[in-house]
Amino acid sequence: MEILVLLILMIIGAFIATETRDLLSSVISVGAVGFLLCLAFLYLKAPDIAITQMVVEVLALIILIRATLHRDLTFVKGMRAKLGLGFSLFAVVVVTVLSIPFFQDLPKFGHPLLSEGRSVANFYLQEGLRKTGAANITTSVLLDFRMYDTLGEATILFTSILGALAILRRPSHKKVKEKDKEEALK
């Protein structure tokens, strides 16, 4: 029940974030959605993720606000052309309609797959403490049973941060300036 209320509030927040004209209030609405998501994780018995979501949300908000606040163009003007908007909405509706049959194949809410017989999650819950000695089963999955995945994900994080650094480096900025000067001379 709490989950439904939180989800409806999140959808309202997401709508406000997409439709409002002021970029700053849009960013703040996304922050509200993130904190509601953190509450939802807490209700769904996932405290690890609730902590992570909360801290990451704060940092993401700071970055988004610092990225948008100092730009002078904070107001969005107008929408796309009518035809393009119609096509986009049509695409969204088509994706929604085509996805409806898949909801029948999902397990019922509150009765996950692990409650039926021998699943891998059941194995983790049963043998996690004996095989790794960690009381937090999530951590034992993350860093022992599935350490390959964590290694790959650390690599992805490293690569994305490296990409951000490479894009924002100073020397390329200078080159752009020189290019502009050449263009101005022409």
């Binding site: 405290p47 690890d48 609730a50 902590i51 992570t52 801290v55 990451v56 940092l59 960690a134 009381a135 937090n136 999530t138 951590t139 034992s140 993350l142 860093l143």
Partner: peptide, 14 residues
């Protein structure tokens, strides 16, 4: 991180 909620990812971000 291996006894209570938490771990390397949230701790690092904090």
């Amino acid at each position: 991180g291996h006894l209570t909620p938490g771990g390397g990812f949230p701790g690092g971000v904090i």
